[in-house]
Design a protein around this nucleic acid. Structure first.
Length: 507
RNA sequence: GGGCCCAUAGCUCAGUCGGUAGAGCAGCGGCCUUUUAAGCCGUUGGCCGUGAGUUCGAAUCUCACUGGGCUCACCA
């Protein structure tokens, strides 16, 4: 692996470890050091006292030595743990020789423990004046440069542990990610939702339109899919009486990788009985407004070059109105497959897509046919206009196999997708709870699959059986957590907000 | 998967017209007892991503491969 100069640097550090081991009577990598507090607490204690220097406040802290500044007879090192960074000051005249020997054998990157009293340096920095010191864990590999850090995108992702050590911004992103998820959990919990976990391995494909990963269970000799969505299981739970549930977990989709897509990604899905998609719009608005305020402390966020403003009521735009407004659709374009196909061609929907749809709907319902074509135009023409938070509502039923039909127009459904800066952040609808209609929609999915739609769902018999026991009127929503983290940390690449994004294997 | 771009020391980067490579940081040896990217002096460190080709001669030009970035497509 490592040859040449890097190997030499590693060898040096290993030699330091060997010498340290001798000083410690043969103990390598000791584990008996007990900090009295974490670094953040030590800093807080110091901040509570005006004149800490005269107080003789003793602390014992451990962390990674991230810098070393030697003057010969005075040495400063900076230690960092999860909660903060603190400086330690060694004064040779005040210390036994053993301690200073340990210090000389300390390399930047080592995990060390210090004991001493708190004081402030001339420039006011909180510092531990060291009275005892040990190296706890040797860093055998040299760290990247202190000033520029690790910039190489590939190395940052492959060796996230190094990225987190040397790049503070990266550390902050993941601290923020954790806060966001906690905020969302608290938000759901406070509204009476219960967190649940449903299977990640599914025998039947469903809950979304996507290509799956396939796997196999040996003992049962059974084919399984990594789930593309938890939806059908969560609704089974609503049938079972858990009428407000949510799950925050991974989904897996066997599709392309881009700056907005990782094959495994985190979603929250939640189901709320006796509510409709209109209630979900209000809830979503409340959630995002609160999140933005809590996480960035403002009402606006800069994302993908746009100033996104969460203060005003979020825009609501129906699919059909969007097409009327941005693509000049007239009523006939929503009903006549020939005119709809003409529109699709005009707005550069790929030929193969149009043909697959035509094949699926041959001899079928004209309006469904036209509306499915129209959806592709929507993506092409309307989506680029969706910068500020927008609910796109009232999707065609034909592209919404799990959504409840609109009472006013059964060819459409009570559904919305939530857009910010041209990207989809969420998908929600009033749930279809009529088992006969659901069975028909599954059959339509099978027909689409037969016609060449690789992302169509399978027929889930058990789910139909669950619906036959009675699903209360329910509304459900899924939100992409990774994208929310991107939004609130102003990152353009999803890989910057996923600790270990999928990469090709090394070498 | 398509298009464009990138790969030089442990890290961050230079490298002109094709003439076998340089800086800063880190490391090592000195000086320095409150530094803040400490400073000063000295110094180690390279199969220039891999493999072919063109050429008297390749980090540099060409092709292929590998990995990555951006972008388009598919999607959330």
């Amino acid at each position: 692996m490592s040859e040449g100069y890097e190997a030499e640097l590693i060898q040096q550090r290993i030699e330091h470890l060997d010498e340290l081991t001798k000083l410690e009577n043969g103990t390598r990598y000791p584990n008996d050091f007990q900090p009295s507090c974490r670094i953040g607490e030590a800093l807080a204690i110091a901040n509570e006292h005006e004149d800490i220097g005269s107080q003789e406040i003793h602390v014992q802290v451990a962390g990674r030595a991230i810098s070393k500044n030697s003057f010969g007879k005075a040495v400063f090192i900076k230690l960092r743990d999860q909660t903060g960074t603190i400086q330690a000051y060694f004064r040779q005249n005040d210390l036994p020789e053993l301690l200073f020997s340990r210090l000389k054998l300390t390399d930047i990157g080592d995990i060390v423990g210090v004991a001493g009293t708190l004081f402030r340096t001339r420039t006011g920095e909180i510092t531990v004046k060291v009275s005892d010191y040990r190296v706890l864990s040797k860093s055998q590999r040299p760290l990247p440069e202190k000033w520029h850090g690790l910039k190489d995108q590939e190395l940052r992702q492959r060796m996230r542990y190094v990225d987190l050590i040397v790049n503070e911004e990266s550390r902050q992103v993941f601290i923020t990610r954790s806060k966001i998820i906690k905020y969302i959990r608290d938000f759901m919990d406070s509204r009476g939702f219960m967190e649940v976990e449903t299977p990640m391995m599914h025998p039947v494909l469903g809950g979304a339109n996507a290509r799956p990963f396939k796997t196999h269970h040996n003992a049962l000799d059974m084919s399984l899919y990594l789930r593309i969505a938890p939806e059908l299981y969560l609704k089974r739970l609503v049938v079972g009486g858990f009428d407000r549930v949510y799950e925050i977990n991974r989904n897996f989709r066997n599709e392309g990788i881009s700056n907005r897509h990782n094959p495994e990604f985190t979603m929250i899905e939640f189901y709320w009985a006796y509510a409709t998609y209109l209630d979900l719009m209000d809830l979503t608005e409340e959630l995002f407004r609160g999140l933005v305020k809590d996480i960035v402390g403002a009402e606006t966020v800069t994302f993908r070059g746009h100033e996104i403003d969460f203060a005003p009521s979020f825009r609501r735009l129906s699919v059909l109105d969007g097409l009327r407004q941005y693509a000049g659709y007239e009523e006939a374009d929503f009903n006549d497959p020939v005119r709809a196909a003409e529109k699709a061609r005009q707005y550069r929907v790929p030929k193969e897509v149009i043909e697959t749809i035509q094949k699926t709907h041959a001899g079928g319902n004209d309006r469904d046919h036209a509306l499915e074509l129209a959806m592709h135009v929507f993506e092409e023409v309307v989506e680029p206009h969706l910068i500020q938070p927008t609910f796109v509502t009232d999707f065609p039923a034909v592209v919404s196999p799990l959504s409840r039909r609109k009472d006013s127009d059964p060819s459409l459904v009570d559904r919305f997708e939530f857009y910010i800066a041209n990207a989809e952040f969420g998908n929600a609808f009033s749930e279809l709870n009529d088992p006969q209609d659901q069975a028909q929609r599954f059959r339509d999915q099978l027909a689409a699959k037969a016609a060449g739609d690789a992302e169509a769902m399978e027929f889930d018999e058990d789910y139909i059986r669950a619906l036959e026991y009675g699903l209360p009127p329910t509304a459900g929503e899924g939100l992409g957590i990774d994208r929310i983290v991107m939004l609130l940390t102003s990152r353009d690449n999803i890989r910057d907000v996923i600790l270990f994004p999928l990469l090709r294997p090394e070498g």
